[in-house]
Every structure is written in C-alpha cells, then in structure tokens.
C-alpha cells in the first residue's frame, strides 16, 4: 500500500516537473501553446488557464472591473446540492452588453465560460457549471468596452470535482 502511494507521488512529481519545463518552453516562445495542444482556433488559452478573479480579468483584456448591481441571477441557487451540476443563469441589464463570462473563484481554473452576445441577442444566458467547493461566483460583463462584475456566493454541499 505504501509503495502504491509512493508510486503515485513519483508520477505526480514527474508530471509536475514536465509541466514546469513545458511552461518554460512556452514562456521562451519555443513551443506555442496553440500548437502544443490540439484546440479550437481562437480559444483563449491564457484566460482559461489564469487563476484568481483579478488574473482572469486581466487575461481577458480588462482593467479592474466596476461593481454592478445590474445583473439578475435568475434561477441560480444560493445552495447547490451537487457541485457537478450548478445551474447558473445570468441576465445583464447593462446597455450594450457585449459578453458575459462566468468565473468561479475557488475552482482550479477560475474562468468557466465566455459568451459573446451579438446585437439582437438577449444579454441573458443559462448554463450549468461544476464547482469544487463553496465559492463566490462572478458574472463578468463587458458592455460598451467596459468591464463590470457582480458577485454571488454559492454554497455547495457535495463537491463537483472527482465525480
């Protein structure tokens, strides 16, 4: 049993090291993240890998967002029974809303989704996200080139990571 655990640790250390080295390559521009991982063109790797709310907003290209109350959380619960399926519904009443992003502060990667709202589409989306633990969830709204943020605390009674 002990051996197994140690084995696991070895692998973790090894892969951890590999990732760090890979990170260096990326930083040095030797490997472009886009080519290293098969992924959709235009997918914002940096923003989705960012950690923390501030880092994510920065990676999305925004300055410090202003707090707003013009966000309706619709049917989003305050207590979610199952962290694997947390319904999130966001409606912005800020004029000229261009995009709505969902950020979960305590998830391994903060950014969940970015929805681009073209003219003619309601600034309102509903989806379901995973949450590892109880956390603040942020709606980041881009409207007329400016960023606004609204917060909602969601309690999770059963974690969503690990199935």
């Amino acid at each position: 049993m002990t051996q197994e655990i140690n084995q696991g640790r070895r692998t973790a250390l090894k892969t951890g090291g590999a990732t760090a080295i890979f990170g260096l390559f990326v930083a040095a521009g030797l490997v472009r993240p886009n080519t290293a991982l098969a992924q959709a063109a235009g997918w914002n790797q940096g923003a989705f890998a960012a950690k923390g709310v501030d880092g994510t907003v920065k990676a999305l290209g925004g300055a410090t967002p202003a707090q707003t109350k013009d966000v309706n959380w619709g049917s989003t619960p305050e207590i979610a029974e199952n962290g694997a399926v947390v319904p999130v519904s966001i409606t912005s009443s800020i004029p000229k809303t261009e995009s709505i992003s969902i950020l979960v502060e305590k998830n391994p990667n903060t950014l969940s989704a970015v929805f681009t709202i073209p003219p003619g589409t309601d600034p309102s989306i509903s989806t379901r996200v995973k949450m590892g633990e109880s956390s603040a969830v942020y709606a980041l709204i881009k409207a007329d080139g400016k960023y606004y943020v609204a917060q909602r605390d969601i309690k999770v009674t059963l974690g969503g990571c690990g199935g």
Binding site: A84, N109, F115, T116, I117, P118, S124, T127, V129, K130
Partner: peptide, 25 residues
C-alpha cells in the same frame, strides 16, 4: 447565416452541457 451566440468554454462546464439563450429577428 447570422451568428446569434458564440461562446468559449473551459473545463468547468458540467458534463452534458446545457445552454439557454434568446435572440430576436
């Protein structure tokens, strides 16, 4: 022929994703 919604998702969208939105026109 007109895009009514586009989205980029990360890993934290639930399994078998659900999405609801509305548009006019």
């Amino acid at each position: 022929g007109k895009t009514v919604l586009s989205a980029q998702w990360g890993t934290s969208i639930s399994k078998n994703p659900y999405l609801q939105f509305a548009f006019s026109g």
